[in-house]
Design a protein around this nucleic acid. Sequence first.
DNA 1: TTGTACGCGTTATCAC
DNA 2: GTGATAACGCGTACAA
Lengths: 325, 325
Amino acid sequence: MEDVAAAAGVSRALVSLAYRNAHGVSDTTRDRILAVGEDLGYVPNRVAARLASRETRSFGVFLQDLHNDLFADIHDGIRGVTDEHSRELVITVGALDGTHDLRSLATLQETRVAVIIAAGLTISDADALAQSKRTPMVAVARHIPGVDSVTSDNLHGGLLATEHLLELGHRSIAFLANPPSDGYLGRREGYEQAMHAAGLEPRTVPSTFSRLEVAATTVQLLDASDAPTAIFAHNDVGALGVLDALAARNLTPGVDVSVVGYDNSSVSSAPGTDLTTINLNGPMLGREGALMAIQRAIDPEAEPMLITHLPELISRGTTGAPRGV
Amino acid sequence: MEDVAAAAGVSRALVSLAYRNAHGVSDTTRDRILAVGEDLGYVPNRVAARLASRETRSFGVFLQDLHNDLFADIHDGIRGVTDEHSRELVITVGALDGTHDLRSLATLQETRVAVIIAAGLTISDADALAQSKRTPMVAVARHIPGVDSVTSDNLHGGLLATEHLLELGHRSIAFLANPPSDGYLGRREGYEQAMHAAGLEPRTVPSTFSRLEVAATTVQLLDASDAPTAIFAHNDVGALGVLDALAARNLTPGVDVSVVGYDNSSVSSAPGTDLTTINLNGPMLGREGALMAIQRAIDPEAEPMLITHLPELISRGTTGAPRGV
DNA sequence: TTGTACGCGTTATCAC
DNA sequence: GTGATAACGCGTACAA
């Protein structure tokens, strides 16, 4: 930068202003400076810029699992907003078993991002709250009390999914549950409430976030003497695992066994998948999360914000009446 | 940091060393320093650290499309290596239409990463080469002359896929091609060579990287009077689009129409998808790309490196003999 | 272990 | 309105 300034016959400060399109530098001088910079192969150093500017322009983004299309949807939503507001994104990725969450958040904090937009955190409410005291955080797809959150009513979604299956005539409905953790119990509760309301005994089968493992669990379930006629999976990735298991057993989704997922991630609408699911609307959650982050960056002291959407059922081809009804 | 040093009764330099687990700090002092830091709520500033250390420890990662499982695979492979070597990752994401590539590379360059690991770049060879002169680059899943590359022989893969279909007895085989660009023509050439060798006329249908758009193109193809009996898609995402189209027309993959993908991204092996494909081995490409980046960081002047794998066919359920054979 | 010169911009504060 | 000067920001590295 020093060199550019010297070669252009101006001060370093002016070079800085020119590169940032700041006003206070005449068009002619700016063009000249940029031309000289180009000539000398000067590339501004963002690290130095961040340090010097006490950085408030970039947001951290935590995405739990790149193999889950929902997080690609959320990322799309976030970037749609941040691109428009010319905010940079610092992205970190979790791990399927949730062991990366705290480390990723620490990284973002150490990078001094203005706000962390976290999608799919599996840490406890308490840990998340503590974390958000240090660097403001927006939780996406999860409600964390005391922390800005953009979420959807999971209990309601669980009710919708289960009631849909009940209305189709199913009585033997299993729920493939994710590992229990703060903030991810609503779907299970919705399922159990709906079952109880129908006078049925819930059948909650513990499972994981891995498509393969859900498939394995489902195969066992299907092979049992009391196999359910319908399966509600805690998310779409799980539902894909269920569909895998049905394929392995040569069963047709929606005919032999009904399947409901959760998320409406973009894969679920593909004709070849055609999964009945609950619409979480990842792109919208991402957009709103980013907008909330912008608000939070403006006023760090404001009360925690909360947006809760009411999810809807999207009925597609993987659900139908049980055999013999 | 100043405060921590004062409170612990040591110098700033020692605090720095303590936080980096560097040797030259006695265990007791380090523990004391960390305790004091914890007390004061001190969080080291990575931005400052990067600037001060003239940064050579972090790698930039460019992933073209988060909706494509291949890039999740590649990311997994990269992180497996970089976690072990305690290298940080700065991640940027492209856009389906390739318009984000240059901007993402510029961002990584401005962030002064040691090496950029780029997966799925769609810019021209010339642009990529020019870019790599500024910041060393490793191209993953693509060979760029003059740039470190970890790739797979796409022409060979195209041959394998087509020959597989020919051996099954297919004569009417269409290739759904990606938009033409440097470095992504091998699969098409392999297809065309194999067709010519069999005395058949290639039928290359232009398409895109979007699952939805490939599905739409395929539906048209299936509805034509001269619909092919087999379809080879330029990648797995495309093949999923083809499967979508088959589902929409109530056709069974591997029975009514055979489908071959390309990548063997982790979705393709799911029992419910069970896609015949060419194994690109994303996790391995990622690992090798990361290892190559480490080499490159050590010796920026070494000759460009190139690893080319010979891909293999993975025959699964979406291919079979054509009807009537 | 410590002192201290960096690294590389940004952002007041001024001068014309 | 244009441009210059100089004081930061926050660690790291190297000599002492």
